[in-house]
Simulated scan of single mutants.
Amino acid sequence: MGQDSPATEWTATRTTLDGRRRTATPLNADDITWMLDALAHPHRRAALRVLQDAGWLSLDVLARGVLARRDVPATGDDRPPLAAIRIQLHHTHLPKLDAADVITYDPDDGRARYTVEDDRFHRLLDDVAFEEA
């Protein structure tokens, strides 16, 4: 008595900082892992914020958007920060986000778009962006 059957899905309600109430299903460990992994690096978070409402963006436009959202230190070599961000996005961050089904990235065309439809991911991204602002 007092326990839900495995087939029963329960929800939790919480109040956000701005007073809104949110109802959501609980996250399992796999959900938490992929969301936190996708949002672990500040370049990935910035790229997702740039892509979130943009549709398809070129790698160059995306790199400029990430640079604008981040206080990026000098790279320590002759490359300007924009070139370093572009390389990191192309070789590391965009493929990782694509593999996590958060974006679609075409490395041959050099374009990406935001594709995740999980409302919990959207809320987590919004919460992280609020904390970083």
Rank of each mutant, 00 (worst) to 15 (best):
R123T: 04
D18H: 02
T13I: 11
V72G: 00
A40W: 08
L89R: 04
R21F: 01
S58G: 14
L62I: 15
D127R: 08
V116W: 02
P95H: 11
H122N: 04
T115K: 09
A38W: 02
R49Q: 13
A74Y: 03
T104E: 14
G55M: 00
V128R: 00
T13Q: 15
H90P: 00
R20M: 03
A74G: 11
A40T: 13
R113W: 07
L59P: 02
D98G: 05
G19V: 08
L94S: 03
D78P: 00
P42I: 04
A100N: 07
R69W: 02
G65Y: 04
Y114K: 01
R20L: 06
D78N: 12
P42Q: 10
L17W: 08
T115L: 10
H91E: 09
A46W: 07
L62C: 07
W10C: 11
D4Q: 15
F121T: 03
R79E: 14
G55K: 10
A100E: 05
A46I: 01
H90Q: 09
D37C: 12
I32Q: 00
A84R: 13
D18C: 05
R69I: 02
T15S: 01
R44Q: 07
G55N: 12
D37W: 12
I85K: 04
A7P: 03
D71L: 12
L97M: 03
E132W: 10
D18L: 04
R45L: 01
V50F: 06
A84Q: 13
M35T: 06
A29M: 12
T16P: 01
L62R: 01
P73F: 04
T8F: 01
R120W: 03
A100T: 10
R79G: 00
A47K: 01
A7M: 11
R45S: 01
V72S: 11
P80K: 13
L36P: 00
W56N: 05
R64W: 04
D30F: 12
D77G: 08
D78K: 05
T75L: 08
H41M: 08
R20P: 00
H90G: 10
Y114V: 05
W56L: 08
G110D: 02
Q88S: 13
L62Y: 05
A63C: 10
A74N: 10
D53W: 11
L36F: 09
H91Q: 12
Q3H: 15
S58V: 14
R20A: 08
M35P: 06
D106W: 01
R69V: 07
H122D: 09
V116C: 02
D30R: 10
